[in-house]
Design a protein around this nucleic acid. Sequence first.
DNA 1: ACTATTTCCTGGATGC
DNA 2: TGCATCCAGGAAATAG
Length: 318
Amino acid sequence: MPELPEVETIARGLAKLVTGDVIESVWLGSKPQTFKSAPEQIAATLQSKRIGEVRRVGKHIVFELEGRASGFRRQASGVSDEKAGVRSQESGVRKGKKAAGKRARATRAGATQAGATPAGAKAQWVVHLGMTGRMVVCAPETEIEKHTHAIVKLASGRELRFVDARRFGRLSVARGFEAGGTEPLEIEVEPFIALFRGRKTPIKSALLNQKLLRGVGNIYADESLFRAGIRPRRRAASLTREDLGRLFITVKEVLQEAIALGGSSISDYVDADGEEGFFQLELRVYGREGEPCRVCRSPVKRVVIAGRSSHYCAKCQK
DNA sequence: ACTATTTCCTGGATGC
DNA sequence: TGCATCCAGGAAATAG
């Protein structure tokens, strides 16, 4: 399950592999829910672009796209790139086949994003891996895996493929992409504390809320709370400044350590080079139900909060 | 404005 | 062995 450290690791790996390469052609699969922007718009936006910076924003991978196809005009209207993007989004609303409702909603979200964007921002390819999404860089003759939803041919002769069995992953194009909340590795202590003020929701849920902090998922929420000595069910508003001060430290600590170890390889996560991470060996509570707490030896508990399994030590966390 | 719940999806694990 | 059932998870949609 790629969370911030895994996505960071993958983005760094991809940056090394594909920065500077040029997209020669794009094939997109037929599962509509994979594409958060209209497939035609994704294909048109990627076509003939040079891949610039590749970076992580929350749990998203963002590819900056530079330049454009010579002579390419969307809908032969001669409008600017910016307007072409908006226009094709609108046409997406009108067209909408069986997924009309879904598409319209997704399009509105995209339009809001574009609206908040400085004019002239570069086009971007945004990838969310969901649970099982993977970006594969390989030779064109490599057998096409089951659940391959996108294939991007590169001028270097290689292909960049998006493979996602469970299909929670999403592809889109944007300009000035911004994901809701604040980057946990960049936030300062006071804004961090302010995020949770007055919230009745369990602190675990608040940590998972991407509109507050972006990039923390189930594994790192549990690990941060363990290190801070806070039970996941505690209401966010009930935490003292001291509690939140500790949590502020442990969230950063856990994420940084996990990045340093290349993420956690649970189930089938591997980085852009196919290498496993090592942070799964450092996990103190996640996935350790019934096993002895590494600090006090009492068995790790598992409860369900907001539909997510949450692991904690009843003795070490209050 | 918030919060809680449901939905999507398939491979792997478990149960009988 | 085979078949059914459950479970994992992020985020958007829906309900309260």
